[in-house]
């Protein structure tokens, strides 16, 4: 766990800077792989927040998003206009669409112990080998959702992004499940939309029980 302790060190340094941020912007960073709908997830989250009258900004990390490659997308939520365009270096919440990234990419970079973490997995934080890292975190802000399984069940394919948004709505309370459903319907249509809405609802329930 040498790599992780290094990350933790960086965190200590950056929390002070994070605390001094003047605006009450809420920043979400989503990690996943090309083909998993990482960018769509950020976009849908921004639409859900917009539906509730918030300002929201979603943008990808602009890599060459080939299937399977690590992808990052960002989303900022605020009560006022969002002007800043830098990538999110100190997220208030982290959504990890593929747990295999945990030990490949520095997904926890810039994370403070007050942050929310949502992981798409059937396993626990311990089983994933990140229990040490999250020790100082608030347990109620840590959550796992079997989004692939829920997507398989409701959509027919392991596309976890919509389900994770349902989970995120429950975990953070920042957006309602209704807004998430509305956002999903603005991106998809027909059976695909309804399947994803169902997956999101199931994940919402799962996260609430969590």
């Amino acid at each position: 766990m040498a790599a992780l302790s290094k990350v933790a060190l960086i965190c200590v340094k950056t929390t002070a800077a994070a605390a001094s941020r003047m605006t009450l912007v809420f920043q979400i960073r989503i990690h996943g792989r090309g083909g998993q709908g990482v960018v769509s997830a950020a976009e849908m989250l921004s639409i859900a927040a917009f539906n509730e009258g918030k300002h929201a900004q979603a943008f990808p990390s602009f890599g060459s998003e080939r299937t399977g490659a690590p992808v990052v997308a960002y989303c900022r939520l605020d009560e006022r206009e969002i002007r800043v365009r830098e990538p999110i270096m100190h997220p208030d919440a982290l959504i990890i669409q593929d747990p295999t990234l945990l030990h490949q990419v520095d997904v926890f970079a810039g994370l403070s112990p007050s942050a929310y973490i949502l992981i798409n997995t059937t396993r626990s934080f311990e089983e994933l080998g990140v229990a040490d890292f999250v020790r100082g975190f608030q347990p109620e802000r840590l959550c796992t959702v079997p989004a692939n399984e829920l997507a398989l069940k409701h959509v027919g394919r392991p596309v976890p992004s919509a389900a994770l948004l349902g989970g995120f709505a429950a975990l953070s309370g920042l957006v309602s499940l209704e807004s998430v459903a509305q956002a999903i319907r603005s991106k998809f249509s027909g059976r695909l939309a309804e399947g994803n809405v169902a997956a999101a609802a199931a994940a919402f329930k799962h996260a609430q029980a969590n």
């Binding site: 976009e43 639409i47 929201a56 979603a58 943008f59 990808p60 602009f62 365009r85």
Partner: peptide, 12 residues
């Protein structure tokens, strides 16, 4: 307009 930063950003 700035490529990606604006073209690919969702905002209001």
């Amino acid at each position: 307009m700035d490529g990606f930063i604006l073209t690919h950003a969702y905002e209001r």
